[in-house]
């Protein structure tokens, strides 16, 4: 039982961490709070199925074998994010963070309604990799195989990203840009390349979240990105805006807290789990308004 809870917490926390990382990456390089991230996730989900308003989804791309499907969906997510940057955020490069945030909110609304027009408003049943739902027995607990794969995938993604940020030139440039964008540009970091790369990575991460969500819930819903994006936002704020490791740690923590609340709350209070969660977050921020792992550069300098 407790091992099962541990896996629940790790799988949920892992998804939140990957989503939070997608938001923190973009915030880091261009101080943009990307309210369209949830819709990137939803778009990647709906890319799997053929556009129609029927309740039962017909798999389009989703029918492809996994080794082809996964890179393809990642590319679609990355492509969408890069296109959004080129069309919407590049013309606003010098705008204030508030204006950027509002325009990303508008972009999210546009994408969501585009999905509504193409696919209709009803949630659809999607069976992606249904055979992964079988439970596996580990040390007396039965854990769905999918959950193990999710945890493993999250570890691989996080490790890969950490390696990329530490060891490659692009990663170095990204970290430099996140630290001080103007200074990095003066030292020869090409801003368009770094920002496009950050958006591509962020879109790819959104696609990872999308695949995991579909495989876990078996539902494609136009609104599915919103809730997870909200948690991811909260994770980036709690982790300290702009801190990548902070976002990951806070995402894991919120996922764990959420799984624990789900298990520990009395049945009649369970529907209010999210309200408790958000209330708890506001409490944490009362004591550490700058977040738990605020980077040094986050303080405004005079």
């Amino acid at each position: 039982m407790s091992l099962q809870l541990l896996f629940d917490a790790m799988a949920l926390g892992g998804i939140y961490a990957v989503a939070a990382l997608g938001i923190a990456l973009i915030f880091g390089v261009m101080r943009l709070v990307n309210f369209a991230h949830g819709q990137f996730i939803a778009c990647a989900v709906f890319a799997l199925i053929v556009p129609s308003a029927d309740a039962l989804a017909v798999m389009g791309l989703g029918a492809l074998p996994a080794p082809v499907l996964i890179p393809l969906i990642l590319l679609i997510g990355a492509g969408l994010a890069v296109a959004a940057e080129a069309l919407v955020f590049r013309p606003m490069r010098n705008a204030s963070p508030v204006a950027l945030m509002v325009s990303s909110f508008a972009l999210g609304v546009a994408l969501q309604n585009l999905l509504l027009v193409l696919y209709g408003g009803r949630p659809k049943a999607v069976s992606l990799w249904a055979e992964l739902g079988h439970p596996v027995r580990i040390a007396g607990a039965s854990v769905p195989l999918l959950q193990l794969i999710v945890v493993a995938a999250v570890v691989v993604v996080l490790a890969g990203l950490a390696l990329m940020l530490r060891k490659t030139r692009l990663g170095l440039e990204m970290r430099a840009a996140a630290e001080d964008f103007t200074m990095a540009r003066m030292l020869g970091v090409r801003s368009n390349r770094v920002i496009s790369a950050a958006f591509a990575l962020s879109g790819g991460l959104a696609a990872v979240v999308a695949l995991v969500l579909v495989a876990q819930t078996g539902v494609a819903d136009v609104r599915m990105g919103g809730q997870i994006m909200l948690v991811a936002f909260i994770a980036t704020v709690v982790g300290g805006m702009g801190s990548l490791s902070g976002a990951v740690a806070a995402g894991l923590g919120i996922g764990a807290a959420s799984a624990l609340l789900q298990a520990g709350l009395p049945a009649e209070a369970r529907p209010f789990r999210d309200a408790f969660l958000y209330g708890g977050v506001i409490l944490v921020l009362l004591f550490r308004p700058q977040g738990l792992f605020a980077p040094v550069g986050a303080k405004p300098r005079v």
């Binding site: 508030v98 809730q227 936002f233 704020v237 999210d274 958000y278 977050v281 308004p289």
Partner: peptide
């Protein structure tokens, strides 16, 4: 909270009330 973090917290408040 500072500006942008406050904005996100108001978003959490909206979701909380809705839940």
């Amino acid at each position: 909270l500072s500006g942008i973090a406050a904005s996100i917290a108001t978003f959490a408040f909206l979701a909380m009330v809705n839940t």
